[in-house]
Simulated assay, not measured.
Amino acid sequence: MRSLDEVRDRLDTVDYLADEGLAMAVFLALRLGKPLLLEGEPGVGKTASAKALALALDTPLIRLQCYEGLTAGEALYEWNYQRQLLAIRLAEARGQELADADLFGAEYLQERPILRAVRHPGPRPPVLLIDEIDRADDEFEALLFEFLGEAAITIPELGTFAAARPPVVVLTSNRSRDLHDALRRRCLYHWIEFPSPERAAAIVRRSVPGAAEPLIRSTTDFVGRARSLDLDKSPGLAETIDWVSALAALGVTDLVDPVVPGTLGTIAKTPDDRLAVAALLGDPT
């Protein structure tokens, strides 16, 4: 994408409304060939932005979902031990001897998301989403340093694989823990704020086209007010879309409908949050 306006327009065509800050971050990441680290509260659209970017670029999305205990074998590459064992048995049956080099060749290599992104044949580089990097262990971050800095992976038995066309890398974090400075230095950075009620309404309008306009305006305004409460988990844009979808499916057109309290489980995810949100719903101020 050649300009900031083109980034915004291309994302708009796939129904992702990026604000100026996010559009700038994406443009610079593409222009400079740098990974982009997106942080923000859950539900503000971090993961959705990477999915939308892949659609806008008309290129595959490769996703690595992070979690505690994630290993290099699950994220980078792994050896096909069953095929290696079969090769050993066949060689023994034939009276042959196998050297280590015979067992650790490319034919025994299993690509995981990051190596798959590095070796992607094209014609366009893929978008690699490393989702919720803060859920992985500190040690896992160190495995990413070479890839994030050089778009390459070193496999001791085979050497270094460098991407002919470096993938577009998007990392997301909910800030459940601090990320290592070395990882941050390798990335461009952008914090995604909760959208304003007006912008949230524009996004919901795209996502739930069958919803009544008064319902969209009242729900997005209400969710904005709910975020000012002391909640365990503030409702994000994803929860807002779920709520409007549920209300629209029930034929609700405004929040005074008596069925609305029964739908609060779409935006309130704990018993205490549900009580607090229900109290706000019953408060006309």
Rank of each mutant, 00 (worst) to 15 (best):
M1L: 14
D5R: 13
E6M: 02
R8A: 13
V14F: 00
V14W: 02
Y16F: 15
Y16W: 00
L17C: 06
L17W: 04
L17V: 12
L22M: 10
A23Q: 06
F27M: 09
F27V: 01
L28F: 10
L38I: 03
E39H: 05
P42D: 09
T47M: 09
L53V: 06
A54S: 13
A54R: 00
L55K: 15
A56D: 07
L57P: 09
D58F: 01
Q65I: 05
E68A: 12
E68H: 15
L70N: 03
T71M: 07
L76P: 13
L76W: 11
Y77T: 03
Y77R: 13
Y81C: 10
Q82L: 09
Q84N: 09
L85D: 11
A91L: 07
A91K: 06
R94N: 14
F104Q: 14
Y108M: 03
Q110T: 09
Q110E: 11
R112E: 10
R112H: 00
L115C: 04
R119Q: 12
H120R: 10
G122Y: 09
G122F: 10
G122D: 01
P125M: 00
E132S: 11
I133K: 01
D134M: 02
D134P: 09
R135T: 12
D137T: 15
D137Y: 00
E139L: 14
E141F: 07
E141I: 11
A142W: 13
F145V: 07
E146G: 06
E146P: 07
E150R: 14
E150Y: 11
A151Y: 07
A152S: 13
T154D: 01
T154E: 05
E157Y: 09
L158Q: 08
G159N: 13
T160F: 08
F161I: 11
F161W: 04
A164Q: 14
R165V: 01
V168C: 03
V169Y: 12
T172D: 01
N174F: 12
N174Y: 04
R177F: 11
H180L: 15
D181G: 12
R184S: 10
L188P: 08
H190C: 13
I192N: 02
E193K: 15
P195I: 03
A200Q: 12
A200K: 10
I203N: 00
R206G: 10
V208A: 07
A212Y: 08
A212P: 11
A212W: 08
A212S: 15
E213H: 06
L215N: 03
V223H: 04
G224R: 13
R225A: 13
A226N: 10
S228L: 14
K233M: 14
P235W: 06
I241G: 05
I241R: 02
V256K: 14
V259K: 14
T263L: 07
T263P: 03
A268L: 11
K269D: 08
K269C: 05
K269A: 01
K269F: 03
G282H: 15
D283H: 00
T285L: 11
